[in-house]
Design a protein around this nucleic acid. Structure first.
Length: 179
DNA sequence: ACAACGATAGCCT
DNA sequence: GGCTATCGTTGTC
């Protein structure tokens, strides 16, 4: 399964980290030969988890401040979790966010609300501390598509995915051009 | 050894 | 809507 397929499949999935989590409503796919991807220049100490087993976490620090959580797919491919709809452990998530809103819209906010740390890098989504439950088959969810956010290379790929109509997206998806 | 730049969020006007 | 904190990773000298 490609990172793009995985990114679509994860919309509607339930993500829970040590008792806090919710439904994934926004993702982005990053590929192996994708200039915007951390894996583009090959394995390094930082991105090693991206080349590790599928179904494990890739956690990295962004802008020296935030952490971002990814699900690893095929080697060198990963899906960034950009937003969830909070459902489980609301109190602990609000406490971690110190009451700031939005709670889980944006990759740094998701990681903070879930209590992700760099020690989670490379950890499996195996139903233990990290769990991921895919949505029921034939999920009726409408998925909207757009271009990725905050990158400077490979800009045009429509590899950002969201749950149509969801509140709590990190940014709106532009309406399709009415050709 | 050094400089540049982020897969951002928060606070300001 | 714009400005800036903040620091590890990476590419270059």
């Amino acid at each position: 399964m490609t990172a793009v397929d995985l990114a679509r499949a994860l919309i509607g999935a339930q993500l829970v980290v040590r008792g806090a989590g919710g439904i994934i409503i926004e993702t982005e796919a990053y590929g192996r030969d994708d200039p915007a991807s951390h894996s583009f220049r090959g394995p390094t100490a930082r991105n090693a988890a991206m080349f590790g087993p599928a179904g494990h976490a890739y956690v990295y620090r962004s802008y020296g401040i935030h952490l971002c959580l990814n699900v690893v797919g095929r080697p060198g491919e990963a899906v960034l979790i950009r937003a969830i709809e909070p459902r489980i452990g609301l109190g602990i998530m609000q406490a971690r966010r110190q009451g700031r809103m939005p709670l889980c819209a944006g990759p740094g906010r998701v990681a903070q609300a879930l209590g992700i740390s760099l020690t989670d890098n490379g950890a499996p989504f195996d139903g233990g501390q990290l769990s991921l439950v895919l949505p029921p088959a034939a999920s009726p969810a409408d998925i909207v598509t757009g271009t990725r956010i905050g990158i400077s290379r490979n800009l045009h790929q429509p590899w950002r995915f969201g749950l149509a109509g969801a509140a709590g997206l990190s940014r709106p998806f532009p309406a399709a051009a009415p050709f």
